[in-house]
């Protein structure tokens, strides 16, 4: 029997109630974007696969905690997977390593936008909004946020890798993220 078209939030809620088919469908919808995220952060195909596997197991276990009034299913899932990736990077001792210049150049979200990351109707609109909001940020804030988001490094390492004073890193991150929040709120 064909599964009715539920939203990601509905699928996650159903998964929280033990609906394995809803969970499977949610996997189909979320896994490509989450796998892309993990590959960017971990820069290792095998590690990314392992984290995707572990992340979905955790997602199934925690699905009943999801509150659609507080977040989208996708962003809620991203939080779970990012935490796992960061924990993994910490375990591998990568969070405190200086980053090569080549890696710095690739740590941008703007370049990947044109690849149609999230083109499915409503989600696509949300992606466009995030892209627009990010592009509205001052360049130094945008670059820092992109780099921090993709690399999962500590602020000390980021400051050292980019050759920016630590205080500047902290300030730009705070201001940039607050600005992004406001921009996204305006679009909601």
């Amino acid at each position: 029997m064909a599964q009715p078209e539920y939203s990601e939030e509905e699928l996650l809620q159903r998964a929280g109630r033990g609906d394995a088919r809803a969970f499977d469908r949610l996997y189909d919808l979320l896994s490509p974007r989450l796998f892309g995220l993990l590959r960017q952060m971990l820069t290792d195909e095998r590690e990314a696969e392992d984290m995707l596997q572990d992340g979905f197991v955790q997602l199934w276990s925690k699905a009943s905690d999801f509150d659609p009034s507080l977040s989208k299913a996708f962003t809620w899932a991203v939080m779970i997977f990012r935490h796992k990736a960061i924990d993994r990077m910490r375990a591998l001792g990568r969070r405190n390593r200086l980053v090569e210049s080549a890696a710095l150049e690739h740590a941008t979200l703007a370049d990947s936008v044109h690849m149609g990351a999230d083109d499915a109707a409503e989600a696509g609109e949300r992606s466009a909004l995030v892209r627009e909001a990010l592009n509205d940020l001052p360049k130094e804030q945008r670059q820092l946020i992109e780099f921090a988001f993709l690399k999962g490094l500590t602020h000390h390492v980021i400051a050292e890798s980019l050759g920016i004073p630590l205080g500047t890193v902290k300030t730009n991150i705070r201001r940039g993220l607050l600005c992004l929040r406001d921009l996204l709120k305006g679009g909601v």
Binding site: L37, W76, V78, M79, S112, V113, L184
Partner: peptide, 26 residues
């Protein structure tokens, strides 16, 4: 709130199809 804002950035990541056996692995 800021965690959710940061998570929104993942929408800009290029999707990559996981290995075909990933669902079974999970």
């Amino acid at each position: 709130e800021l965690e959710l804002v940061a998570s929104e950035l993942a929408r800009l990541i290029a999707p990559v199809e996981p290995p075909s056996n990933m669902k079974r692995r999970i």
